[in-house]
Design a protein around this nucleic acid. Structure first.
Length: 189
DNA sequence: CCCTGATTCGC
DNA sequence: GCGAATCAGG
């Protein structure tokens, strides 16, 4: 795969949205997260900053024993303003780094209280107590994607427990999500 | 162990 | 320019 303009645009867009390199890599396909990160740097947009004083550039220095000759910069301490740190801080920032939902993600089916075996149902309720309560963006291929709660309210999250190998849900949720035809045959109401 | 981004360097 | 390998950290 190569970095066509279209792919680069997707990269830029997703990076700007705060998506992780691995998520971007999956979306693009044909590239690893390393490739994405490498490209991000080459494009010069490594800092997701904009107006953010993040520790994005935490210079490493173990890999290469840089002899790094004498670099000037004596103790030139500049003190533009004393800044006595006012007592009351006003949260003037207005950029909460809002995450944008990927959209288009097919959500798992909501548990329809009927049509499921009592055992499984009980198991699910048990599990929901210990769910990790992950947000949409925190989901990975190994976290249970079973939705819990009402999407329209704040009481909404995803199970997040370890998934069954090869399944999108944890053991308990696989139980209610994938039921053999045999067991769901005409349950009397 | 899962994940994150940063950096290096051979290609 | 590219990205695997590697590093540092959560």
């Amino acid at each position: 795969m190569s970095w066509t303009e279209e792919r680069v645009e997707t990269l830029k867009r997703m990076w700007a949205e705060g998506q992780s390199a691995s998520q971007i890599a999956k979306e693009l396909g044909g590239v690893t997260r390393n490739a994405v990160i490498g490209k991000v740097h080459r494009l010069g947009l490594s800092n997701r900053a904009g107006s953010n004083g993040k520790p994005a550039a935490a210079t490493r220095e173990k890999t290469a024993p840089k002899p790094e000759p004498a670099a000037e910069k004596p103790p030139v301490r500049e003190k533009p303003a004393p800044r006595p740190e006012p007592v009351a801080e006003t949260p003037v920032h207005s950029t909460p780094r809002r995450q944008i939902i990927p959209a288009g993600r097919p959500l798992p089916p909501q548990p329809s209280a009927n049509e499921i075996s009592p055992e499984a149902l009980a198991s699910v309720r048990e599990v929901e107590k210990t769910a990790k309560k992950l947000t949409l963006m925190e989901l990975t291929e190994r976290t249970c994607k079973w939705p819990i709660g009402d999407p329209a309210t704040e009481d909404f999250w995803f199970c997040g427990l370890p998934v069954q190998p090869g399944k999108p849900y944890c053991e308990a949720h696989v139980g209610v999500a994938f039921q053999p035809m045999s067991s769901r045959r005409d349950r009397k109401r």
